[in-house]
């Protein structure tokens, strides 16, 4: 038990969860067939808003994280509105440029502390154990240490957020909005001819993606104790994109599986860490050439369902 729950494994599990949330964020934007390359930028807005609110203005964490998400979402509407009127490629470029500009602005502003970044952000773990003790509850359970308990609780919160997001996406797919998303993804002109307001739905998907990216940014700020402009550079965007490309973006589980694999893989291949980005690049090219729909597509699910269904009969 102690070996399984050591701090290193727990920390990796926490990162898997945050990355899975980011995977959901790119899934939502991709579900209308739009590619956003600004997720790291939105993450950065969420993280900085949240960190500044808690460190400098003394906001409570549970309020600051949603505010960070909303800030990112508002920004996405400003960016998305001109870009979404055009074809998908414009959005990709505009958001890519946006991510870079956010980086430049963050590097130059005083409130974000420039290249030094913001440190001393209260971590969720310590907040939780403080809260526990203020309620008079014990800070540790059974044989677990204080740190293990708080990390486990953080993990629990992240799992709950992720489960909620997955539930939300699954329900969304069955709703009017989700069907509009799917129609736009299949054929935008046909969807428009059916009377779907494509700009509205594309903007909605884009803003939802940004909201979740912003929240993930806020969460990651409160997990790592430090944020700097380099944390949210272009490579972060590519990593987030890879979750969807590897896992598949047809279903919400695709990017989550992608995030799981791509967070665990570098930990297992520590010795090859210099070549990580090279492997990622090669992976993107190979996936596009051989399996552009990703590991998990709707056909995969259908195939296994029919196979398992026949097996049980």
């Amino acid at each position: 038990m102690d070996m399984l729950l050591n701090q290193y494994y727990l920390q990796i599990a926490v990162f898997v969860m945050v990355n899975a949330i980011l995977g959901v964020s790119i899934y939502l934007t991709l579900s209308t067939g739009q590619l956003s390359l600004g997720n790291a930028g939105f993450m950065s807005i969420g993280a900085y808003t949240c960190a500044i609110l808690t460190v400098k203005a003394g906001f409570p964490v549970y309020l600051a994280i949603p505010i960070g998400g909303i800030a990112a979402s508002l920004m996405s509407i400003i960016i998305g509105f001109p870009a979404l009127r055009l074809t998908g490629i414009y959005l990709a470029i505009a958001t890519l440029g946006f991510g870079e500009v956010v980086r430049v602005i963050v590097l130059n502003l005083k409130i974000t502390n420039g290249a030094l970044g913001i440190s001393g952000i209260p971590t969720l773990g310590t907040k939780i154990s403080k809260m526990l003790s203020s309620f008079g509850l014990p800070q540790k359970f059974g044989g677990l240490s204080v740190q293990q308990t708080s990390t486990l609780l953080v993990l629990l919160i992240l799992v709950l957020i992720l489960v909620f997001l997955v539930f939300f996406c699954v329900r969304l797919n069955r709703s009017r909005v989700g069907r509009a998303f799917a129609a736009i993804k299949a054929d935008e002109s046909a969807a428009e001819a059916m009377g779907i307001n494509t700009t509205y739905y594309k903007l909605l998907a884009f803003a939802l993606g940004a909201l979740i990216a912003g929240i993930a940014g806020g969460l990651s700020a409160h997990l790592t104790f430090f944020i700097g402009p380099k944390d949210f550079a272009y490579h972060r965007t590519v990593e987030i994109l890879l979750y969807a490309v590897l896992g598949g973006s047809d279903l919400v589980f695709g990017p989550i599986v992608g995030a799981l694999i791509l967070t665990l893989l570098p930990e297992l291949l520590r010795s090859a860490s210099n070549y990580r980005l090279m492997i990622y690049g090669a992976l993107l090219v190979t996936m596009m050439a051989f399996r552009p729909q990703g590991l998990i597509s709707e056909e995969t699910v259908r195939f296994w369902k029919s196979k398992l269904g026949r097996g049980s009969k």
């Binding site: 590619l35 990709a92 990580r276 690049g281 090669a282 992976l283 090219v285 596009m288 050439a289």
Partner: peptide, 30 residues
């Protein structure tokens, strides 16, 4: 390597974009 295989199949218009992003990351890391 990255573009011709995609032209043979009917893939989403985002596929070449993503594929070239892969080439970009590979070259930068190289």
């Amino acid at each position: 390597v990255a573009l011709r295989p995609l032209r043979r199949k009917a893939v989403s218009h985002l596929a070449p974009l993503i594929s070239t992003i892969g080439v970009a990351i590979f070259l930068e890391s190289l």
